[in-house]
Simulated scan of single mutants.
Amino acid sequence: MASTAASAAALVNGAYELAEGERWFDDRYVYVDILSGRLFELRDDKGPTAPCQLVQLDVPLGAVAPVAGRPGEWIAAAGTGIALLTAGGAVEWLDRPEDRTPAPSRMNDGVADPAGRFWAGSMAYDGTRGAGSLYRTDPDGTVVRVLDGLTIANGPAFTADGTTMYFADTAAGTILRCRVDRVSGDLSGSPEIFARLRDGEGGPDGMTIDTEDCLWVAVWGAGEVRRYHPDGHRLHTLTVPAPHPTSVCLHPDANRAFVTTARHGVKTPTATSGAVLGVPAPVRGTPGCAWGDRR
């Protein structure tokens, strides 16, 4: 297993409390600052530049995906559920399932799969064990609880064919993998443990898959990003200059990775805590998918 210290450049010194949910959509890179409910866009990644704020909600914003065929509109894991964000700034709630849970909770990271479904996890604000769930939002707007009993549901990430999903339970230190029926979106059996981090290694957070079907995972609390082969063995560890990397995204047209980081929970934050970092990478990624896009 190779291990290197990243030659990381801060693309955005945002002082974000909890930057996460980064994706490439067409020619733009988007990410969120969860606790402030803000969505940002970055179109020039060649050096430090000012991001454009696209949305600000009055609830936490975990992640978004574009709505197919409706420019400027997003599906979002936000607050206690799933919402549509219109180009005019209106919020249309599809469902708020976390309103019906005993522990005060919020939505967390999420992603659209190649079949046009949107998947997102949840967590209790106080980290109550087993209070988190994984949800699927079908192209018709139906929100389904797929799994429960999680603590901090993170990821997910899909292979290019949409039949394999990875996701993490950060608090448990586990990365899980399961088969997904591409037509129905149902899981084929129970998730299997793909990788488990030992005590003291940090917790798996946001993730993505590269063009070689390898999984990249940001490790909260460890200041590193890991790359795993599909057979489960770790290929590489990239050390980044921030203790809480929250997600990783790979440029689809250049050998470059982006890593969001957090100031949340850092006693003595620096300029790279709560930032967007640019890091050289050996491979490329694929553009994010849209919700409702049945490709």
Rank of each mutant, 00 (worst) to 15 (best):
G292A: 11
R256F: 10
D199Q: 13
D26R: 07
K46S: 15
M107R: 06
V276Y: 00
A77Q: 03
L197A: 06
D126M: 10
G185Q: 01
A9Q: 10
L250A: 03
G141L: 15
R284H: 08
Y228D: 01
T208A: 09
T211C: 14
A124F: 00
R70D: 10
V259P: 02
P104F: 11
R129E: 12
S184H: 03
R100F: 14
V240P: 00
D213E: 15
G223S: 08
T142K: 14
F258P: 07
T270C: 10
P66T: 09
P280A: 10
D161C: 09
W216D: 08
V219Y: 04
G278M: 05
D138N: 13
A115L: 12
T260Q: 02
G265N: 10
G132W: 07
S7Y: 09
P282L: 10
W74K: 06
H251T: 03
P269S: 09
M123S: 08
S247Y: 01
R234Q: 15
S188Q: 14
A195W: 08
A242G: 08
G288S: 10
D26Y: 05
A124P: 06
R136A: 10
L61E: 07
C52Y: 02
M107Q: 02
D45Y: 02
T49F: 12
V225D: 02
A5N: 14
P60A: 01
L134M: 03
V143D: 13
G232R: 15
G285V: 00
V30G: 09
D99Q: 12
R117P: 14
L85H: 15
E201M: 15
Y135I: 02
S36Q: 07
A153L: 07
A19M: 04
S247F: 08
V144G: 11
D253C: 12
V143F: 14
A281F: 10
A63I: 06
A271P: 07
H264D: 14
A171S: 09
V266T: 11
A112F: 12
P252G: 02
R28G: 09
D45L: 11
A78Y: 04
P204K: 06
T211D: 11
D109C: 06
A10Q: 05
W291R: 04
A8I: 01
E20T: 05
G189F: 07
M123G: 05
F167V: 03
N108Y: 04
V276A: 04
Y166M: 02
D126L: 08
A103P: 03
A87L: 12
T261M: 03
P282I: 07
P60F: 00
C52H: 11
T142S: 15
